[in-house]
Design a protein around this nucleic acid. Structure first.
Length: 579
DNA sequence: TCTATATCACCC
DNA sequence: AAACGGGTGATATAGA
């Protein structure tokens, strides 16, 4: 803690109260900030904040800003038009990193951290009542204003108590890097993803009807739907009437998974339309997307939420959460373009680089690792191509993915619809071709088991419990370093002035004026390549780009069919004007 | 009628 | 005991 104090001219503990609803940016209500060296206290209400051109505290190189969930603080800075702090220490992120993988008795909120470090209760934080008071949106009486400021300050005081505890085990340079990512998160959350709100409104208006129409046409021959819900009981009746035997789960329930449906539809083709209907319906949710008044999708990206350090935004609120066909709603506004840029086979590349396996690296750099693997294993000729040996490539691809997740031969066999011996052979070929990788991977798992901890290049760590899932340990270096790579890229993309709409695990969505789009894509790809080289000690990963230019919309091959079906239905419904 | 659990579907 | 990594969320059914 003394080191930390000595490292900065001033250390500000900061907290805002704000109103954030739907996909809108926060409406700032008040600010409380304490300075550690001087004991200075700031309590500012929103009318006072509105008069400030910049933050009432210095945010330069010699200053540290400390907060629990700093992305929210920084997002308030951006909203107010203030400068973005140079150095950010996020106590939430550091608490997550110090305890990641351990069972937390009280969760990961401020209270949880307090309890974990054995601190006394948080004091006067009548949470629900004051929070409700804030969300009424005012106007507030003088007493209420004091209560809200007190409430806001209680978090600052709590952070002040928490700081020495967190600082105890702090790796400052890396913590500041994580803080930089929280700044990037604030900017991405502020910027958001452009949505075709006109179309979204139409879809929402007709949602129930669209579902009903889809069901009505198909269910005529089955009678297994009541309203829009599939009834197992009715389905059982149908099966009995039609003399169809059906697999059951260990629990005795009918096995209704799509896999089973697929298999059964093969033997009983008349089931196929029902299967398609079930698939379509299961994908239809768009009710809770968080869209701001300006037509942009914004939501909490939940950075460092997953054990691997990945973001974990709500799949309901985030446009990249639901089924891919709904991404057709992503549309740049006039004069703008978007680009979805992702690293090619990121986890395979990371495995190759970190393990130092020469053959794996070579396969990655060939541009088609799956086919290269098949060639290295001697399963296809050297001049084989994606088209000349499609089935082989698919199997070797499935094998690579299986290895990444620690899949066994049985599941792989099922996956590629091949006998066990084929799956076993593929897995054996992987072990034989990539010996160095396997040695490294097993070493990492052993290390985790021995020392109870695993971490990434930049120190995102996970504790290993008494009964760890070995497949998690095996996958962690790839997934967690992938997350590290994405964070670094986001920081640097934004520092280069590129508008980043959203991070998506191994990809980013960026936006630019049409006149500059190509140039900015090139710059972004360079930055992403550099980020991979930093994480992987010089090894570079390639990127793929999908550019979308106004008036086009985002389109994903996997979702085209569903998108078109729904839009056709929508057109007829709009045509009828029955609303 | 409400809640808990199991199961499933989706994303990377 | 199971054996596909990290997740969120919806829904149908069982049980209180």
């Amino acid at each position: 803690m003394d080191d930390l104090r000595a490292s900065f001219k001033s250390i500000w503990l900061v907290n805002f109260e704000f109103i954030a609803e739907g996909g809108n940016n926060p409406e700032v209500v008040c600010l409380v900030a304490h300075e550690l060296h001087s004991g200075l206290v700031l309590r500012l209400w929103r009318d006072e904040l509105g008069l400030l051109v910049n933050s009432p505290y210095d945010v330069g190189e010699e200053v540290l800003l400390v907060s629990y969930c700093a992305s929210e603080v920084v997002r308030c800075h951006i909203t107010l038009g203030w400068d973005i702090p140079s150095n950010v220490l996020d106590l939430y992120v550091e608490f997550r990193n110090q305890t990641n993988g351990l069972p937390l008795p009280c969760g990961t909120a401020l209270v949880g951290a307090f309890t974990w470090y054995g601190l006394d209760s948080l004091g006067c934080r009548e949470k629900p009542s004051v929070r409700n008071l804030i969300h009424t949106g005012g106007p507030w009486t003088d007493t209420e204003i004091r209560a809200i400021l007190d409430y806001c300050e209680s978090d600052v005081i709590a952070s002040e108590k928490l700081l020495p505890k967190v600082a105890d085990k702090l790796d400052l340079p890396r913590a500041l890097l994580r803080g930089s990512y929280m700044k990037a998160v604030a900017q991405m959350e502020f910027f958001g993803v452009p949505i075709d709100t006109k179309l979204l409104n139409q879809l929402q208006r007709h949602w129930e009807t669209i579902k009903e129409e889809l069901i009505e046409r198909i269910d005529l021959q089955y009678h297994v739907y009541q309203g829009t819900t599939f009834k197992q009981e009715d389905f059982l009746d149908y099966l009995i009437e039609n003399d169809i035997p059906w697999p059951r789960l260990p629990s005795g329930q009918l096995d209704l998974s799509d896999d089973t449906f697929k298999a059964m539809a093969k033997c009983y083709p008349r089931l196929a339309p029902l299967r398609e209907l079930r698939t379509a319906l299961s994908q239809m949710r768009l009710g809770q997307l968080a869209i701001g008044k300006d037509g942009r999708n914004r939501c909490h990206l939940a950075p460092y939420r997953a054990r691997t350090g990945r973001n974990q935004p709500s799949t309901n609120k985030f446009i990249f959460g639901p089924s891919v066909w709904l991404r057709g709603l992503i549309k740049p506004s006039e004069g703008f373009g978007l680009a979805y840029i992702d690293w090619c086979q990121q986890e395979f590349g990371i495995a190759a680089a970190l393990s130092g396996d020469p053959k794996m690296k070579e396969a990655y750099q060939s541009g088609d690792p799956y086919l290269a693997f098949a060639k290295q294993a001697g399963a296809v000729p050297q001049d084989a191509t994606k088209t000349s040996h499609k089935p082989e490539r698919e199997q070797f691809k499935a094998c690579v993915l299986a290895v990444q997740y620690g899949m066994g031969a049985e599941s792989l066999a099922q996956n590629i619809n091949q006998p066990m011996y084929r799956a076993k052979e593929l897995l054996r070929l992987h072990r034989e071709t990539y010996k160095v990788f396997w040695c490294w991977s097993e070493g990492a798992v052993d290390h985790a088991m021995l020392y109870g901890k695993l971490w990434t290049t930049f120190g995102w760590a996970v504790h290993v419990d008494q009964n760890p899932n070995p497949r998690f340990l095996q996958n962690f270096p790839m997934q967690a370093n992938g997350a590290e790579m994405l964070r670094l890229a986001c920081i640097q993309l934004i520092e280069a002035g590129i508008k980043v709409c959203a991070p998506i695990h191994d990809a980013v969505l960026i936006e630019a004026p049409l006149t500059e789009l190509d140039e900015i894509i090139e710059l972004a790809q360079q930055i992403m390549s550099d980020a991979s080289a930093v994480i992987l000690d010089g090894f570079r990963l390639n990127t793929d780009v999908d550019a979308i230019r106004y008036p086009d919309r985002y389109s994903d091959d996997r979702g085209v069919e569903m998108w078109e079906t729904v839009l056709r239905l929508l057109e007829t419904l709009e045509g009828q004007g029955n609303d």
